[in-house]
C-alpha cells in the first residue's frame, strides 16, 4: 500500500516569493517522518507540495520534482485530483464538513466523487475507517449526528478517518495536534503508530517530544530571516537529530537554545 517519496531540487513559490528553496529528501515507505522548524520556515508549504495542494492557492507554483514510487507528480499530464486520492491530508484545524453527519463525513471521499457504493459496503467502510482512527467506540451510537458536534480531538480523528477511507498510500499531517489537549494528542500519536504499519506518514509538528515519540526520521527546516526562503537544514534518523545532530542550528533548535 504505502509508497516511497523522493524530492529533488524543489523550489516552492507564492507568486514571486520563494518560500522554500532547494529541498532534496527521500522518505521511506511505512515510516513516519517529522518536519520540525520555527514558524514561517515553510514546513506547511513544503508539505502541501507533496500532494499538489500548494497550487490551490492563486499564484502558487513549484519547480523541481516530487517522485512517488518513481512517478513525478509535477509531470505536465499528471492530474492533481488523482495525486490527491493517493496522498491524503489532515489539516491543522479539524475541518469536518458542517453539512454532513459523522457517517457522511467518513464517506465524503466516496460520496463527493459520485461513486456508487452499496449500503453494506458503506457501513463496513465507515466502521473500518472509524476503527482505524480510534473513534468507533466513541461515535458508533451517533453516526447520524453532525460531525461538527464532536470535541476537537474527536473531530480531528474524524478527519483522519475521512482521509483513510479513500485508501491513500501516503498521509500528510500538518500540525494535527496543535489545537488539541494532551489526551487527544496522545490518542492521535497512538493512532499514528498504528497507521504507519500501512501508510507512509509525514507529520509537521511544533512539539519536539512529539517528533521524537512518533517519528522514525526527522527533517529540520530553518529560515535565515524574514523574506528569505526556508531551507532543509538537516534530515536524519530522529535519534540522531535529537541526540547527535551534525549541524549547529539543529542542535540549538532541538535543545531550545534557538535565537
Amino acid at each position: 500500500m504505502s509508497k516511497r517519496i523522493e524530492v529533488r531540487d524543489l523550489n516552492v513559490y507564492y507568486g514571486k516569493f520563494l518560500a522554500v528553496e532547494g529541498v532534496n529528501l527521500e522518505i521511506e515507505p511505512r515510516s513516519v517522518t517529522a518536519f520540525i522548524g520555527p514558524s514561517g520556515c515553510g514546513k506547511s508549504t513544503f508539505l502541501r507540495t507533496l500532494n499538489r495542494m500548494h497550487e490551490v492557492i492563486p499564484g502558487a507554483r513549484v519547480e523541481g520534482e516530487v517522485l512517488i514510487d518513481g512517478n513525478n507528480l509535477y509531470d505536465p499530464d499528471v492530474d492533481p485530483v488523482l495525486v490527491r486520492r493517493q496522498v491524503g491530508m489532515v489539516f491543522q484545524r479539524p475541518n469536518p464538513f458542517p453539512t454532513m453527519s459523522i457517517k457522511e463525513n467518513v464517506l465524503a471521499g466516496v460520496k463527493l466523487n459520485n461513486k456508487r457504493i452499496s449500503k453494506s459496503d458503506a457501513d463496513d467502510l465507515v466502521e473500518k475507517s472509524l476503527l482505524g482512527a480510534n473513534l468507533w467506540n466513541e461515535v458508533k451510537d451517533r453516526l447520524d449526528r453532525p460531525g461538527s458536534g464532536l470535541s476537537g480531538g474527536q473531530q480531528q480523528r474524524l478527519c483522519i478517518a475521512r482521509a483513510i477511507a479513500v485508501a491513500p498510500e501516503v498521509i500528510l499531517m500538518d500540525e494535527p495536534c496543535s489545537a488539541l489537549d494532551p489526551i487527544s494528542t496522545l490518542a492521535i500519536e497512538d493512532l499514528i503508530e498504528e497507521l504507519k504499519l500501512q501508510y507512509t506518514i509525514v507529520i509537521v509538528t511544533h512539539n519536539m517530544q512529539q517528533a521524537s515519540r512518533v517519528s522514525d526520521k526527522t527533517a529540520f527546516f530553518n529560515i535565515a530571516g524574514t523574506g528569505k526562503p526556508g531551507n532543509l537544514i538537516e534530515y536524519a534518523d530522529t535519534t540522531t537529530i535529537f541526540s547527535n545532530p551534525s549541524v549547529k542550528a539543529t542542535e540549538d533548535y532541538v535543545s531550545g537554545r534557538f535565537g
Binding site: M53, V56, R84, R85, M89, F97, N113, R162, A163
Partner: peptide, 16 residues
C-alpha cells in the same frame, strides 16, 4: 478549509 478538505480527498473542483 472546507474546500481544501475536499480537494485533499481527491474531489475535483466542480464537484467540490
Amino acid at each position: 478549509e472546507l474546500r481544501e478538505a475536499s480537494y485533499a480527498l481527491g474531489v475535483p473542483k466542480w464537484l467540490t
